[in-house]
Amino acid sequence: MPYDKKSELPDSVSDNLPSHAQEIFKEAYNSAWDEYKDPKDRDGNDSREEVAFKVAWSAVKQKYHKNDNGNWVKK
C-alpha cells in the first residue's frame, strides 16, 4: 500500500535513512506501486509490494550510500 507520510514508512526505512532519503523512498515506492499494479508488468513472481520496495531502495541508492560506520549519507 502506498505511504501518505514519512511517519508511515516501515522501521527499516525510518530508523536508518535520513529525512531526505526517506522522502525519496516514499515517492519512488508510491510511483512503483502504481506502475506495477498489473502482475504482467512485473518480472518473475514478485508481489506488487516486493517490486515497489526494490524500486524505492534503488532510488535511494542513486543519491545515498552507506559509509564505513554503516550510516546512510548523501553521495
Rank of each mutant, 00 (worst) to 15 (best):
D43E: 12
D46G: 02
P39N: 01
D34W: 03
H20L: 02
D4Q: 13
R48S: 00
V73D: 03
N45M: 06
D34I: 08
E49V: 10
K5R: 14
D15L: 10
N67C: 12
D11C: 02
D43Y: 03
K40M: 04
D15Q: 10
P18Y: 01
D41L: 12
G44A: 07
E49G: 01
Y64D: 14
F25M: 02
K40T: 10
S12W: 04
N67L: 06
D11K: 13
E27C: 01
S19T: 13
Y36H: 14
K66G: 08
N45E: 15
A32P: 10
W72A: 14
L9T: 05
E27Q: 15
K61R: 15
E23H: 11
L9R: 05
K37F: 11
K75R: 12
A56W: 12
H65L: 03
Y3D: 06
E8K: 12
F25K: 04
G70Q: 01
Y64H: 10
K74Y: 12
P18H: 00
A28P: 14
D34L: 11
H65P: 01
P18D: 00
Q22E: 08
D68C: 03
E35H: 03
D68Q: 12
D15F: 04
Y29S: 00
S31V: 02
E35F: 00
E27W: 04
D46K: 15
K74E: 15
V73E: 14
K63L: 07
A52V: 06
P39G: 08
D34M: 05
V55G: 09
W33E: 08
G70E: 09
L17R: 02
N30H: 04
Q22A: 00
I24L: 11
W57E: 06
A28D: 11
K26F: 03
